[in-house]
Design a protein around this nucleic acid. Structure first.
Length: 484
RNA sequence: GGCGAAGUGGCCGAGUGGUUAGGCAGAGGUCUGCAAAACCUUCUACAGCGGUUCGAAUCCGCUCUUCGCCUCCA
């Protein structure tokens, strides 16, 4: 079966073939770095991480660009308010560069914890000012943009397809309910800024043919996407809230310069909600990832995210996360049992599982169904281990390979290691394992002497630090609980 | 007001015309010194009202409700 992707532009699933055989170009809107990442960022970048991993698994050479927005765009609307990064710099009593560098590092720390692979190129907007200016110059030369008082605006009426992504094609009708105050120097209320003249005291500013100022918000993605991926790219991803105006503006300014389709497949991931309401920095209900990681294994967060489809809203709650933690433990436990079992005779066919997993992923990256396949396999393995002497060497190898490919390489939710202690370095992890073995030996001795008070105390206290002891018919085993 | 998405069992969450989603939680059982884990059995569904159809949670219409966007936002 071929890969089908839901294309937001067409509002339908379409068969995916890259423009250039074997090579996939993908651009995903990156974060604006003026604060720590939250769960919403996690959902977005985990989702696209799996997209990239699946494309690579299918044999494509994937070139993945994810920008860093470090130009301070405005806190308010397109024409007023304070620069977000400058504002944060003022609050933290430092300068904008330190703010953007600090939160960029913070962002990657969090993404690393979530097992999100780094993009091939992570271009910063401030490092591509010349490219953005060049794009504005081309737009002016082509008659799609005009300058007024050092500001440059894109003329929406010069691009007939404006609004085709979001469905906002009737510009006149839009004005009636619009909350943005119209600005008189624009030729049309829907026109958007490509370059803005810096006001007094504005810190992040650059020289340009029109004024000392800074680029409009939508410009960087077009300029950097074209620079690194070409004028037409295969996939552009981002959050749904960016369909309008951000992505519609990108399309307008890009296509009116090149005359070519800007993006072949638009992919939009849905929001994280808290108690049914959107999570957002400005709404002050955002769940900071660093805080979350103190309580919950980051891979549980990843698993929780992938248990719903990327185009569905994901409602966050503590109980939902806990349910995910228990579920992921089940998969890890199966993987552990499989690795520890002695070879037996039971066999089963991996092919149906492989097929169902592939079909799910090929159907617009249906990770919830893909995970359900892992649970079905988990049950099959456990049943075989419970009701027979063990699984044959061949079936075991096939199962392990499948779990590794699907769970570790593609979904990134199972780490390949047998047992790990938190995120400690390997050395200390080895020592801890040995210490646990000592405690288990002592407990076994107590049990042999029917000293259950002592043996239970050892078990309970180990459980209290997240180490769970299990007396199975194959002997004593232990595993780490993911907590939550 | 305009554009768009959605309402599934106690909770989370897939499915899109006829056959078990899956996870978590609950009940009973097997196993165990007791647990845990695992396995077996099991309960609770498709917002409401019409329509199309041999048959609809799935298609169509209406109603109600929720959410997102139209301001920066993953």
């Amino acid at each position: 079966m071929s890969l089908y992707i839901y294309n937001s532009l067409k509002r339908a699933k379409e068969k995916f073939e890259p423009l250039h055989p074997g090579i996939v170009s993908i651009y995903v809107c990156g974060p604006t770095v003026y604060g720590h990442a939250h769960l919403g960022h996690a959902k977005s970048y985990v989702s696209f991480d799996v997209v990239v991993r699946w494309l690579r698994h299918k044999g494509y050479h994937v070139k993945y660009i994810q920008n860093i927005t470090d130009v301070g765009h405005l806190t308010d609307d397109a024409d007023a308010g304070e620069d977000k990064i400058s504002k944060q710099a003022r609050l933290e009593k430092t300068d904008p560069m330190e703010i953007s560098q600090f939160y960029t590092r913070s962002f990657y720390e969090d993404m690393d914890q979530l097992n999100v692979l780094r993009p091939n190129i992570a271009p910063a907007a401030t490092a591509h000012i010349p490219e953005q200016i060049a794009l504005v110059e081309r737009l002016i030369a082509a008659g799609h943009a005009y300058e007024v008082n050092g500001n440059v605006y894109f003329s929406v009426q010069s691009f007939p397809g404006y609004g085709k992504l979001s469905g906002r094609t009737d510009q006149e009708a839009l004005q009636s309910g619009a909350r943005v105050e119209t600005r008189s120097e624009k030729h049309h209320p829907s026109d958007f800024a490509l370059w803005k003249k810096a006001e007094e005291g504005h810190l992040m500013k650059w020289n340009s043919p029109w004024s000392i100022g800074y680029p409009g918000w939508h410009l960087e993605c077009s300029a950097m996407s074209m620079k690194y991926l070409g004028e037409t790219i295969d996939i552009h991803g981002g959050g749904m809230e960016n369909k309008f105006p951000h992505h519609d503006c990108e399309i307008a300014q890009s296509e009116s310069v090149t005359g070519k389709p800007y993006v072949r497949f638009w992919m939009h991931n849905n929001m994280v909600t808290v108690n049914g309401v959107k999570m957002g920095k400005s709404l002050k209900n955002s769940v900071n990832l660093k805080d979350l990681f103190k309580e919950i294994d980051p891979l549980v967060i990843r698993f929780f995210i992938l248990q719903s489809h990327y185009r569905s809203q994901l409602d966050y709650s503590e109980s939902a996360i806990k349910a995910s933690a228990t579920g992921l433990d089940k998969l890890r436990e199966t993987q552990r049992r499989l690795q520890e079992q002695k070879h037996g005779t039971a066999t089963f066919d991996l092919e149906p599982f492989l097929q169902r997993f592939t079909d799910a992923m090929d159907d617009d990256f249906n990770t919830p169904v893909a995970i359900a396949v892992l649970f079905d396999l988990s049950k099959a393995i456990n049943t075989a281990l419970d009701h027979s002497e063990g699984i044959s060497k061949e079936s075991r190898q096939e199962s392990e390979a499948f779990l590794h490919t699907a769970g570790t390489d593609i979904l990134g939710i199972l780490n390949g290691n047998k047992q790990t202690i938190g995120r400690d370095p390997i050395q200390s992890s080895h020592k801890l394992e040995k210490i646990i073995d000592i405690l288990i030996d002592m407990r076994s001795e107590a049990r042999n002497n029917k000293n259950f008070a002592l043996s239970d105390k050892i078990r309970d206290r180990l459980l209290a630090v997240g180490i769970e002891i299990k007396d199975t018919k194959e002997g004593v085993s232990w595993s780490e609980k993911s907590g939550a």
